[in-house]
Every structure is written in structure tokens, then in C-alpha cells.
Design a protein around this nucleic acid. Structure first.
Length: 356
DNA sequence: TCTGGGGTCCTAGGACCC
DNA sequence: TCTGGGGTCCTAGGACCC
């Protein structure tokens, strides 16, 4: 029998800020991307629950959020600090199981099948971990418990904030079926709309829909969401993970068609990408330039090179792609540089082999 | 939702090789 | 000269998640 936990930190970035400044706890507060763009205060990345009462949520423009809540405290993101707190939390979780998959800065799956023989014991185990995180790292989290990653994830969503939710296998289908289809993991706005046009509005509708028809319409993805809707997910908790790509992107100060506004940004981004690749010990094969236009349409242009670890190759290729594909006179909103086809550099490889 | 930045996975056509 | 099928790489774009 498998028992999986999903531990998800509550309003993580703002919770970290509350450690620095406890007085924030009583106030509506949000962490933003910050912005150099004229007229913009950036976008809300996370907000605490007092702010949510006003309708503030992540992804929203900070100006719009201020319109809903004039007293909202805006804080510019401090990723270094969040990464440190994330590492603290990861260290705590690893005391309880070695089979941990960190899926983002604030979320980890934990396979506790070997630690807990029953769901009741898993529930106690989850309480212990949650308390440890609260006491040792000073941060609140929620925990979902289920027979697979999908159920654990959906249970955790239902547990938030600061809760624990156990969904046993025999209850999984009933638990899921009440949800709107768009709340199911993997179903975003586009798919929700397509499903809705097919008459599929809830997870229950999806679970009892025609599997063949779904596969016809969506390919293997159709099978996946059909299985999810039925509470089926055989994917493993994987603790080893390889980075696939490293990228940086930036919204320009103002929409611009001038090379003079864009090229320096490409250089800065290339530099940052190169620094990150070096820090992680990766060489790369492919460089991709992303261009976003004022209407939010995006174009990607990429070029495969010989394996390289040189900043100059990133910069040269990004500028080359820009010169070749950007229509002169067309304004840009955002540019990005990404490298992929990553391979651990020799020195790094021997280091990890040494430790293995 | 006048909308940031970091990622992942999937698909699909064409090139090229055997 | 015309023909088949498989495999892999390259490139572009879409959708999703946090």
C-alpha cells in the first residue's frame, strides 16, 4: 500500500516576510515581482490571508490589488531569503523520509509507505512533521494525504490554510467528483473551456465520460486527465532531479522597437543565465530567444550549437537570433534567454561521482 | 485577471541517416 | 530511378504549474 503526503507551505513568500517583520501578520500584505516598468508596481506573487479577504490574489497587478485594498503592504521579493527558508524546510522533512520530491520552492511530496502502515499512523506522522516545520522553521504549512500524488495534491488544496486533509482510497472518487473540472491538477483554463464545450463541467462528468472520445480529442493527455478524474495516478515520488533548462526573462521598461533598448538587456540576461549554469555546473547545447510583443503573443527562436559552457556563446547566439528574426520597427514588451540540452560539466560530474 | 518570471512536458513537421 | 520504414535531431509553439 502506498501512502503519499504533499506538504505545501502556506502563502510562503509572505510567511517568510512575517518572520523578518512579525507586525505584518495583522496586516494585509503581498510580495511582488517589483517592476522597473513605468507606471507599474509589478505583479502579486503571493499574499497573506488578510489580503485575500479583499479579493487580492497572485498573478494580479499590484496597482489593481491596491485598488481593492488601499492598506495593502507591498514587499519586493527577496528570493535569497525564501530559498534559505526553503532549504531549512527541506532539511526538516528529510529527517522523516528519504523519499522526498521537492516540486517547487514551497512544495514537496513525501512517500511515507515505509514509515506508516495505516492511514491513521500517516495522519499522526503528518501532524508531527507539520509541527516540526512550524516550531523549527517558524512557518505554517498544509498537508494532503492520499494513496497517490494526485490525491495528496488535491487533498492539500482542500486543507489550506494551515490544515491536514486525509483522503483514503475508498473516498477518493467521491472527494474528487464534487470539484469543477478546472480544479483538477493538469486542467488549466484552455482545457477547462474545451471540456465545457463537450458538456464536461465537473470532475464527476470527466470521470464518467467516454475515454476514447477524450483520447481522440486530446491524445495521451486525454487519458491522463481521465485517469486523474478517477483518482488514478501511478507516478512515483522521485527524489533525484536533473535541471532541463535555465532561463531569464525581463519585461522592458517600456515597449520598444529600438535595438538600443533591447540588446543591453539580452546581454544582461545572457550573463545571468551563464552565471546560473556555471553555479549549477552545466554545459549547454541550445540557446533560445523569447520575444513577447505588446499583444502578449510570443515567439521563440532557438539554435543548437556544439556543446559549450561559454557566456559569449549564449550572448552571441541570442543577439544573432534577435537580429535575424525580430522585425525592425515591431515593438517588443519582453525578451528572454534560455539554454537547454544541459549536461553536467566534467569537473562537476567527477565531483558527484566522487560523492556517490 | 490589462497580465511577472521560473520552469516542465507534449506535439508535430522536416531534415537527415541508414 | 523510384520506393519503404525507423530513428534521432532540430525547431516552434501550446498548455500547464508554482
Amino acid at each position: 500500500m502506498r501512502i503519499i503526503l504533499l506538504i505545501d507551505m502556506d502563502y510562503f513568500f509572505v510567511a517568510c516576510e512575517e518572520i523578518k517583520d512579525p507586525s505584518l501578520r495583522e496586516k494585509p500584505a503581498a510580495v511582488t515581482t517589483g517592476s522597473e516598468r513605468e507606471g507599474s508596481k509589478g505583479v502579486i506573487m503571493t499574499c497573506n490571508y488578510p489580503a485575500r479577504k479583499f479579493g487580492v490574489h497572485s498573478g494580479m497587478g499590484a496597482n489593481q490589488a491596491l485598488g481593492m485594498c488601499g492598506d495593502l503592504v507591498l514587499l519586493k521579493e527577496d528570493f535569497k531569503f525564501y530559498e534559505k527558508k526553503s532549504a531549512d524546510v527541506a532539511f526538516i522533512i528529510k529527517k522523516y523520509s528519504s523519499l522526498v520530491e521537492q516540486v517547487s520552492i514551497d512544495e514537496s511530496f513525501v512517500d511515507v509507505s515505509d514509515k506508516a502502515s495505516t492511514y491513521e499512523k500517516a495522519l499522526d506522522y503528518a501532524k508531527t512533521i507539520k509541527e516540526d516545520i512550524r516550531n523549527s522553521a517558524g512557518l505554517p504549512c498544509s498537508v494532503g494525504i492520499g494513496p497517490n500524488k494526485l490525491i495528496a495534491k488535491m487533498a492539500c488544496d482542500a486543507a489550506k490554510p494551515n490544515g491536514i486533509r486525509l483522503v483514503k482510497p475508498e473516498d477518493a472518487k467521491a472527494f474528487l467528483s464534487a470539484l469543477p473540472a478546472g480544479k483538477l491538477y493538469g486542467i488549466g483554463s484552455k482545457t477547462a473551456e474545451k471540456l465545457s464545450r463537450m458538456g464536461i463541467k465537473t470532475v464527476k462528468d470527466l470521470a464518467s465520460s467516454n475515454k476514447m472520445q477524450l483520447m481522440d480529442r486530446f491524445g495521451t493527455f486525454g487519458l491522463e486527465i481521465y485517469n486523474y478524474a478517477n483518482g488514478i495516478d501511478d507516478s512515483e515520488v522521485v527524489s533525484e532531479y536533473e535541471t532541463k533548462s535555465i532561463g531569464r526573462e525581463r519585461t522592458l521598461r517600456r515597449d520598444s522597437a529600438e535595438d538600443g533598448d533591447v540588446v543591453p538587456v539580452l546581454r544582461a540576461l545572457s550573463r545571468e543565465v551563464s552565471d546560473e549554469a556555471r553555479a549549477q555546473g552545466y554545459s549547454f547545447k541550445v540557446v533560445t530567444l523569447k520575444m513577447r510583443y505588446p499583444d502578449f503573443s510570443e515567439h521563440l527562436k532557438s539554435k543548437a550549437l556544439k556543446m559549450s559552457d561559454k557566456e559569449s556563446d549564449i550572448e552571441k547566439t541570442a543577439e544573432e537570433l534577435f537580429a535575424k528574426y525580430h522585425d525592425k520597427g515591431a515593438k517588443l514588451r519582453k525578451v528572454g534567454v534560455r539554454i537547454s540540452g544541459l549536461v553536467k560539466s566534467k569537473s562537476q560530474r567527477s565531483m558527484s561521482e566522487f560523492f556517490a
